[in-house]
Amino acid sequence: MTELSLPARFEGVEMIQRVRIPARLAYEFTAGVATSRFLRQVVRKRLVGERCPVCTKVYVPPRGACPTCGVATAEQVELGHTGTITSYCIVNVAFYGQAMDLPYVSALVLLDGSDLPIMHLIGEVPYDEVHMGMRVEAVWEDGDEMEPTLEAIRYFRPTGEPDADPATYGEHV
């Protein structure tokens, strides 16, 4: 190794211990053909999944491919607005960008007729009464024209039906 030496004017100068170099990149996210089909229906307060031609599972929101079979989904399947909570989380910890008052409940909801739960909020029920198997329904935002996002559903609330049989959602727990 060659001995490195600094020019005299740098002798005794304090070493730089750290630097901050901000970097920011902007992207235009492409939802994809299948997810776009889904979002265009959400605007009309409809939930339309897509079925895998091989394993027949229905995915919502569809992403264009069956993630187990690796084939394109094409058949559109209109789903109801009711479903079953397969798992949930009571959020008690404040975080940056938080839009909800604490505590609130985030849950995985398996829409009837679909094979992949969606994540959404649970409302109109005390948080400590939320449980797996609870039957819920979508509460849509007001207005005829929705934005193409799942935020068009304000939250899911209990339907008051008896709990679903665990066998109907056990695969998703």
Binding site: T30, G32, A34, T35, R63, G64, V71, A72
Partner: peptide, 15 residues
Amino acid sequence: EGDRNEVEVLMPVVT
């Protein structure tokens, strides 16, 4: 690729 996401671009090529 205006409309297709990465999965939709890749899947036909892999197939």
